[in-house]
């Protein structure tokens, strides 16, 4: 859900602003907020999954090779994964124009 789709009149809100649809946070594309993004060095990565566990936006998922890769639709560039990586396999790079 982008901010613009929340602009509806009060008569159209659900009762008590309940969210009736499960998994609706998928629609909140937090990747739009990002000013930097994680870059993985596969040479250093031991596939420990700490980035996957610690990511506050659940942006990480495991690929076919077993590496954990952040989905840029949701990664908001907080850098927690880079900070927590025990092998310093993740570095944050500035977004470029």
């Amino acid at each position: 859900m982008s901010t613009s789709s929340a602009i509806i009149g009060w008569k159209n809100l659900t009762l008590g602003c309940a969210i009736l649809e499960p998994g609706s946070s998928r629609k909140l594309k937090t990747g739009e907020w990002r000013s930097q993004h994680p870059v993985l060095d596969k040479e250093k990565c031991i596939k420990c999954a700490i980035c996957y566990i610690d990511c506050p936006d659940i942006a990480y998922s495991q690929n076919e090779e077993g590496y954990f890769i952040a989905d840029m639709t949701y990664c908001k560039g907080c850098g927690i994964c880079a900070n927590e990586c025990p092998k310093d396999a993740i570095t944050m790079k500035m977004e470029e124009e």
Partner: peptide
């Protein structure tokens, strides 16, 4: 039938939420 109660009401929603309750 999963649903969410008590989610965040961003500035674009909060006023309308209050209006609904007051009404």
């Amino acid at each position: 039938h999963p649903m969410t109660m008590g989610a965040v009401g961003i500035p674009e929603v909060y006023t309308e939420a209050k209006k609904q309750m007051e009404d």
